[in-house]
Design a protein around this nucleic acid. Structure first.
Length: 674
DNA sequence: ATAGGGTTAG
């Protein structure tokens, strides 16, 4: 550091000695003696050398090679003002602000470019006070300086100051307008942006595209479409943005029409519309367009693979993955996600190990597949491998902690997330709300919710689900009503929370009402989970026949666990005939499902039909089925204690069973007949 | 041909 300073200082003195007086003398003599004088030749030669050096330095900085740039600079026998300016801007480009500042301080002569390069550095780093101060001290200001300052304010959420500068600046050019309009767009102030846009003297296509993108992002497709028709020189991005927009809102007819009208369709446009078809579940149209293209890039391949994964057609996704000539980490991550979605964690993990490289997404994906302590073990491994948890990591792992009711880990992750800068992140916070609610700490959940700057649907959902789990259905409904008042749209998860609230509290009619309002009032098509909730609700209430009928009328593919829900209800209400039928149904799909045999056997046993009970049990062995040992656990002060049926190995065994007995008595007394 | 402001679609 000090040696570097010394070197620069030496260079500066050299530069002072060599440049100024001699330069002017030489120039004078060059004019006097006209060409062909040896000194003049030297001058031309040396200025050529300086120029070459400047080009080299700039190139190195652009490639991020700061060291080489520095070396060239130090070894240059002659430098000019541009050389020094190259150093400032190069350092700024590579986020070496103190070095840039140093160069600025010791350079022999400065011009407006030197000042504005440093100003830009301050602005980029968010040192806005310093930037403003420098700006005020500048001997000369031009539009570029104003633009830098405004851009700095906009990039660091000093929107008001940026506006003030924009109004105050003596002269604006097209870039000033573009900066300011993009500033408004970033703030989501679309109306204001549009007003400014209409006033702007000349607009590049890229600025049109920026406004279009914003409309698309906010789903304002009417505005987007009318602006689109006004774009004088539409480029590929203009068309692609529009196609993406219609794809996003699911208006595939519009997307298709635009795509057909588009002259010289670029690959990005193909990607956009294929993505749209995949989103809308129109796998066939997507595939047809994909096949139409003779050459495809990785992004397009990934779009088609991701589409198949999303549409739960993992086999086809895998086939494409095998066929693609070059894959990147994105492709690998998609297939990894596919394995995880298939709930085949053995394959997923093997695939994970086989990956040529792993990034944060790979880790997040594999971790999300485990709903157990294994997730936490992998999380630790991820940290050991040098990855830093990001937003997705935190939400994933905290959600798993919530599912495990693992308060110790959850709280550790909570503080870690704050230290990592996610204190005010709504997604992380929502997962924390779920965690605390799940662990019964409703006050903490409440605090986290109310201290949010703005609660989104996810946060409201977390609260609703939390109340549902804690046996407070009325609170859940109340939250739902408030949420509506705040003009937030409920989504699938919201209704899952409400239905859970009903099924956990035996609110049959309320639940059915919510289920039907979901589609009729809120235009949300129920998913399997919602149907399952209703089956649970009917089953728990003893409406077994109705539950059975309800399943038979489900418009979706019926997963095994729906039947298992009904089987559980049959056990609860001792309906042996239905139980037997359901259990057989489950076993016909999955003969290795030990749980169904056990349930069946238990039903026979409870009715005293011992022969059938033991016959069922022996069937388990015959089919090689096994039932995983069920267990529960509790975490106290970071130590986890596992409870397995009739286990007597715990040192405090006597105390535990005594507590259990007294709890049983309390529960019997509190039992409300359903 | 070299230095300062904004663009980079899926």
């Amino acid at each position: 550091m000090t040696r570097g300073k010394q070197k620069i200082e030496a260079q500066r003195r050299n530069a002072e000695r060599n440049q100024k007086p001699k330069g002017s003398q030489l120039e004078a003599r060059a004019v006097a003696l006209k060409v062909s004088c040896p000194i003049c030749k030297n001058l031309t030669k040396s200025s050529k050398v300086v120029l070459a050096g400047n080009v080299k330095i700039t190139e190195c900085f652009r490639n991020g090679d700061v060291e080489t740039a520095r070396c060239i600079f130090h070894e240059m026998p002659k430098k000019n003002l541009v050389t020094w300016n190259c150093m400032i801007s190069g350092y700024v480009r590579n986020n070496k602000l103190s070095e840039a500042q140093e160069v600025f301080n010791i350079m022999p002569k400065r011009n407006v470019v030197s000042w504005s390069a440093l100003l830009n550095g301050y602005a980029k780093c968010g040192l806005l006070c310093e930037a403003q101060e420098l700006f005020d001290r500048m001997p000369e200001r031009n539009t570029i300086c104003w633009n830098s300052l405004i851009s700095g304010y906009l990039n660091h959420e000093e929107f008001g100051k940026a506006r003030e500068c924009f109004c105050k600046m003596p002269k604006r050019n097209s870039i000033s307008w573009a900066i300011m309009i993009r500033g408004y767009l970033q703030q989501g102030l679309l109306t204001e942006a549009r007003e400014l846009f209409d006033q702007a003297p000349d607009k590049s296509t890229s600025l049109y595209n920026a406004l279009l993108s914003a409309y698309v992002e906010w789903g304002c497709m009417e505005d987007a479409h009318s602006l689109f028709s006004e774009v004088p020189q539409k480029d590929d991005a203009t068309w692609t943005t529009m196609i993406t927009g219609f794809s996003r809102v699911g208006e595939m007819e519009h997307a298709r029409r635009l795509f057909e009208e588009m002259p010289g369709k670029c690959m990005e446009a193909y990607t956009a519309i294929i993505w749209g078809y995949m989103q809308s579940g129109d796998v066939k149209s997507a595939q047809t367009l994909f096949d139409e293209l003779p050459s495809k890039d990785v992004v397009l391949w990934n779009t088609i693979i991701g589409g198949y994964v999303q549409n739960k057609m993992f086999g086809v996704a895998l086939k494409h993955f095998m066929e693609m000539p070059v894959s990147d980490i994105w492709s690998w991550n998609l297939i990894l996600l596919g394995h995880v979605q298939e709930r085949d964690m053995v394959k997923a993990f093997n695939f994970f190990l086989k990956m040529p490289e792993r990034d944060q997404t790979s880790w997040n994906t594999i971790i999300s597949g485990y709903q157990s302590e294994e997730a936490l073990v992998l999380f630790s491994q991820m940290i050991k491998d040098g990855f830093r948890p990001n937003q997705t990591t935190f939400t994933t792992v905290i959600s798993i902690c919530a599912a495990l009711a693992s308060l110790g880990w959850g709280m550790a992750l909570h503080s870690w997330s704050i230290r990592s800068g996610y204190e005010y992140d709504t997604k992380v916070r929502s997962s924390l709300i779920t965690l605390y609610a799940k662990c019964g700490l409703l006050a903490e959940a409440h605090d986290l919710f109310h201290s949010m700057s703005k609660q989104d649907t996810i946060a409201w959902n977390a609260m609703i689900v939390g109340q549902a789990y804690n046996g407070c259905p009325e609170e859940a409904f109340k939250l739902f009503r408030s949420m509506i008042q705040f003009e937030l749209n409920p989504d699938h998860v919201t209704f899952l929370g409400l239905l859970t609230a009903c099924s956990h509290n035996g609110l049959l009619w309320k639940g059915l009402e919510i289920f039907s309002s979901m589609q009729a009032l809120w235009k949300l098509t129920p998913k399997v989970e919602h149907y399952n909730c209703v089956v649970d609700l009917l089953g728990r209430s003893g409406q077994l026949k109705e539950a059975y009928e309800f399943i038979r009328q489900m418009p979706l593919c019926i997963p095994i666990y729906t039947w298992e829900t009904l089987l559980g209800a049959c056990r609860l209400h001792g309906n042996m005939e239905l139980a037997e039928m359901v259990a057989r149904k489950i076993l016909s799909f999955k003969p290795s499902e030990g749980g169904a045999y056990v349930a069946l056997s238990n039903i026979y046993a409870s009715k005293g039909i011992w022969e059938d009970a033991s016959r069922t049990r022996s069937l388990i062995k015959e089919h090689g089925a096994r039932k995983d040992q069920a267990y529960s656990w509790i975490e106290i002060k970071g130590r986890t204690t596992v409870f397995v049926c009739s286990d007597k190995s715990h040192p405090q065994m006597m105390d535990i069973y005594r507590e259990l007995d007294s709890l049983s008595v309390i529960m019997e007394e509190a039992l409300i007949p359903i």
